[in-house]
């Protein structure tokens, strides 16, 4: 992506100071430290690389998909409405761009959220991680709904009342803030390593500058992860566009006032496989650590 087209809201979303509860989670770092797996800079670097390549990439994909589903309708009720078209050209293939004008209708009103959320569930083997992801998603969404009010975010909260998975909430919030899917993916990849890195600084007393150096070294990998994720989302998005959004557009054209989250029209769910081909890299060690962490007698972080 070229620098001038970056959306400044991305910085707010990725900032650890965003008041969305992230500070209570260590992304598995606390359990890895307790197990002795992470104990110094080299072991932390390996942990972060492994996390980025597995759950980081999957999160980036889910965030990109959620952003693509949510961005276009996000403008209503906010000042960012005109960003829609530009954002559509940025980093998105043309079928997606075509669908953007109505994709929010699909995500928010036609059941696209539950399908994507189920894909996230299927990619999160550990119940402890699933719960942690949902809690963080719920907190992020509650915060994002006040910062970037949007019927799309209301629709997500309604579609997944127990709390959407964190990457989905992140992608939807990015969309509501006017960001492009690749930006959402980058934010997801970034937070997948900064959370554990900060926790390691606190728990091990590592030199914070040295840890930030590790993060800087990962920057090219973050960008690669975001591009990979954005590309991986394309087929699912095309399928959603043709099976859900196009029909949804027709309906919306005949009933334009249905464009509010208060009155979701009953409609068919998209075919079950729309997002099935998204990457599903798993990290069994992270799964086991998450389960162990939940049962640990002493812990500072929720996850």
């Amino acid at each position: 992506m070229s620098a001038p087209s970056l959306n400044a809201a991305l910085l707010l979303l990725a900032d650890s100071r965003l008041p969305a509860g992230g500070h209570g989670h260590s992304g598995g770092a606390e359990a890895a430290i307790a197990a002795g797996t992470v104990r110094d800079l080299p072991t932390l670097a390996a942990f972060l690389r492994g996390r980025l390549a597995t759950s980081g990439l999957v999160s980036a994909c889910l965030a990109a998909a959620a952003c693509a589903l949510s961005a276009p309708a996000a403008g209503s009720g906010t000042a960012s409405a005109p960003a829609g078209d530009d954002a559509g050209e940025r980093g998105m293939p043309s079928p997606a761009a075509r669908g953007r004008a109505a994709a929010g209708v699909a995500g928010g009103l036609l059941g696209g959220w539950t399908e994507l959320d189920a894909e996230a569930d299927a990619r999160t083997a550990s119940p402890a991680q699933r719960e942690a992801s949902r809690v963080q998603g719920r907190l992020l969404l509650r915060t994002a709904r006040r910062i970037w009010p949007s019927p799309v975010l209301d629709g997500l909260a309604e579609a997944v009342p127990e709390g959407a998975h964190h990457p989905i909430a992140l992608g939807a919030a990015a969309g509501a803030a006017g960001c492009a899917p690749e930006e959402a993916a980058l934010a997801a990849a970034y937070t997948s390593v900064t959370g554990p890195a900060t926790a390691a600084v606190r728990l091990l007393g590592l030199d914070p500058v040295a840890v930030h150096r590790l993060l800087a070294d990962l920057a090219p990998d973050l960008e690669r992860t975001a591009s990979t994720a954005t590309a991986a989302v394309t087929p699912g998005l095309e399928q959603t566009v043709s099976t859900v959004i196009a029909p949804g557009l027709e309906r919306a054209a005949t009933a334009p006032s249905a464009h509010t989250a208060d009155s979701p029209p009953p409609s068919p769910a998209p075919t079950a496989s729309a997002w099935a081909e998204l990457p599903a890299h798993s990290a069994p060690a992270l799964d086991l650590l998450a389960e162990r962490h939940l049962r640990a007698g002493l812990r500072l972080f929720v996850s």
């Binding site: 008041p19 969305a20 509860g21 500070h23 209570g24 509650r142 606190r202 500072l300 972080f301 929720v302």
Partner: peptide
């Protein structure tokens, strides 16, 4: 019970999301 990840003051002042929830 809310857990605060080493930062009790953050959870009541700067990032109150988990407590509000």
């Amino acid at each position: 019970a809310v857990q605060t990840g080493c930062c009790p003051h953050t959870a009541i002042r700067d990032d109150i999301a988990a407590n509000l929830d």
